[in-house]
Nucleic acid binder design. Sequence first.
DNA 1: ATAACAATACCGATTGTTCGGTATAATGTC
DNA 2: GACATTATACCGAACAATCGGTATTGTTAT
Lengths: 188, 188
Amino acid sequence: MSAEKERSLSTQKAILKLIPVFRKYGYEGTTLSMLSQASGLGKASLYHHFPQGKAQMARAAFDYIGSSFEDTVLEPLSGKGEPRERIEAMCCSLKEFYDNGRNACFLAIMSFGEADNLFHDLVKQKLKTWIDILAQVLIEAGIEANQAKDRSTEAMMQIQGAVILVRILDDTTLFKKLIENLPAQLLD
Amino acid sequence: MSAEKERSLSTQKAILKLIPVFRKYGYEGTTLSMLSQASGLGKASLYHHFPQGKAQMARAAFDYIGSSFEDTVLEPLSGKGEPRERIEAMCCSLKEFYDNGRNACFLAIMSFGEADNLFHDLVKQKLKTWIDILAQVLIEAGIEANQAKDRSTEAMMQIQGAVILVRILDDTTLFKKLIENLPAQLLD
DNA sequence: ATAACAATACCGATTGTTCGGTATAATGTC
DNA sequence: GACATTATACCGAACAATCGGTATTGTTAT
């Protein structure tokens, strides 16, 4: 169904170099010159790997981050232990994924300006999926369905906000505190 | 101390037109052409009002929003009623200020990419000030100082996150719920 | 007339993108 | 083994368009 891209090894290497640029400067703040320099590839070479240009580069970065998020953060939720343990495992991965809040969230990055026009539905669907997956674990832990969804939505909200505040205030303690309290907040 | 700008009437008129553009497209996503079109002014005319160019336009928009925030959201906190009533008044203004979450927050907008280089300290200071003002009211309500600061910080966090989620999910109910629960969350 | 305001026309620089072409290595053909 | 073919990876140079920003010349008020 979904067009699974089979990336060559060198293309994947390139994607890894592009990610930090988009993360730091956003979609419109990122120029091809930056991407060229960061990847060590000429602009024309970038177009060899991504024929549809900047939008495709951003999309590739987004997809990579999405997969990474699923593999490292969401995967622990699908384990076989106690719900509480699984959620704690998720929180641990979460800290690393966001580098204690220093990493901007790609969902937020891609949710406004020109990027929003290009990726709105994609971003929306991803976020909804992740909220649902978390909610499912809470339901499994005995929490009523509606409240489970509300709580996981609230968690996503807090994470997004925390990332912003960390960036503005140059202080990661906020994010750490949030993550520490998250299991209790979700389950109790 | 701070260089208070005395804006002409027509300049103020222009600023009002510029704000929605920066709000929607961010600093780097906003072009002079957009600003020209939105304001109905030629590019050169914009440079008459803002000789330092785009950065100054963004700064003027930021300052205007800041003043507006102080006047409509923060002002109710300085009243003479009960702390709870004042906070409820703030929340009411807050809903309007963010248009139920549909309005992106200028603090967040100006906190990354090139804008972050230009305005980082300014944004940081503003946010800290607003957290402090809210915390002060909580202290007045009998809450211990450290917890007061933590709670008001958490509130800011949630608001930032809510704005993002509203934009991604096209659903303002989240923001409304948050604001409804905010007084209780801050005070109880 | 004097100053504030606005428009036309223009600038060099950079944007995202494409062209034409090269080097290397794998693959098929005889 | 020898040779043509194809595919992958890459790049310098240039493209039209637009970027942020100016110089110049009116207008429009007072």
